[in-house]
Simulated assay, not measured.
Amino acid sequence: MSDATGTSLWWRTYGRNRRCITLDLHKEEGREVLRNLANKSDVLVENFRPGVMEKWGLGPKDLKPELIYTRISGYGQTGPKASLPGYASVCEAYGGIRHLNGYADRPPVRTNVSLGDTLTGLHAAFGAVMALLHRQRHNNTVPGQVVDAAISESVFNMLEGCVPEFAMHGYDRPPSGSTISGVVPSATLKTKDGRYVIIGGNGDSVYTRLMAAIGRPEMGSQNPLYCNNTERCKREDEIYEVIGKWVEERSLEQVLEVMAEARVPSGPILSTADIMKEEQYKARGMFHEAKPPSGDGPSLTLPAMLPVLSGTPGSTKWAGPELGEHTDQILRDELDLSDAEISRLRELNAI
């Protein structure tokens, strides 16, 4: 969706606090500007197909050796699939997460956000920071590194114990609907008023408090049949039937009240509309108000900068700018180009 100017609200969110320059990298003059900017920078991030930057003379070996060169692609910079285009939709499937999401008797489902892109951005940022820290710990006497972040591998990195489970036991974890394999009880349950609640009682002591709270203390962990997670997994259907029946006889508010009293982790499933009314989010400052750099138009509500840092918390100075809004400013401030030089680049359609 877009704002009144037609600019994507996604960009207004993720482009916040950035200055935006446009370059035509098909032209040598545009590539030269990028070289000069990169050679003044600590980190470069690119997401072209592997080999494209090298073709343009902008690969890691073409720029200063101390640069942290961060690369995002579908399948990584090497391997038989390296040259293939990769969108998050395809790479989430290739990385294994789509297989685990949904129900075994239905087509795999997708979370209604671009999870693969976001996970890859986080991996790329974390890798860049690690490479910077390594360089700084050596007093900037060592060269930079290439950070190779693949969408498929960033998703693959979320598979927890799936790889050793298969390698050791031949267990290929299937989709598990609203539960999670090997953990009982942890599920989504429907309340009397048609809402959904998550209850996680998988620790032994938590599980015992849960069963006591719903009036079934004899099913607590003191009973050998339910004494640990391994035994509870054998009786998964029985446990979920008992908990589910108790939940469906009560409203969401009643369920949450009882669970809170028993110190059992639980919570509602919230939509964005619900979240924006939640006092917890408001108290934590999870919504920022900002305008684009021009200051024109209405203020936008954006999610906060996370994580929260005690000494240097993130703030939103401005929402994502217009495409190329800072081109002239960057060329003047960072590269000391004159108005005449900038005009020439514009005449060449390099900017």
Rank of each mutant, 00 (worst) to 15 (best):
G215K: 10
G215M: 15
G215L: 11
G215W: 14
R216H: 15
R216D: 14
R216A: 15
P217G: 08
P217T: 15
E218R: 01
E218G: 02
M219T: 04
M219D: 06
M219G: 01
M219W: 10
M219A: 06
G220Y: 10
G220T: 10
Q222H: 06
Q222R: 09
Q222E: 15
N223T: 03
N223I: 03
P224L: 13
P224D: 07
P224C: 07
L225K: 09
L225Y: 04
Y226D: 03
C227K: 08
C227E: 13
C227L: 04
N228D: 15
N228F: 03
N228Y: 05
N229V: 13
N229Q: 10
N229D: 07
T230M: 04
T230C: 04
E231R: 05
E231G: 04
R232W: 09
R232I: 13
C233D: 08
D237S: 13
D237T: 09
I239T: 03
I239L: 05
I239V: 14
Y240F: 10
E241M: 02
E241D: 12
V242S: 01
I243H: 02
I243G: 05
I243C: 05
I243D: 01
G244C: 08
G244K: 04
G244W: 05
K245G: 06
K245V: 11
K245H: 10
K245I: 11
W246R: 01
W246T: 00
W246F: 11
W246D: 06
W246N: 01
V247Y: 00
V247G: 00
V247Q: 00
E248Y: 11
E248T: 13
E249N: 03
E249M: 06
R250E: 12
S251Q: 01
L252N: 14
L252C: 15
E253A: 15
E253I: 07
E253F: 05
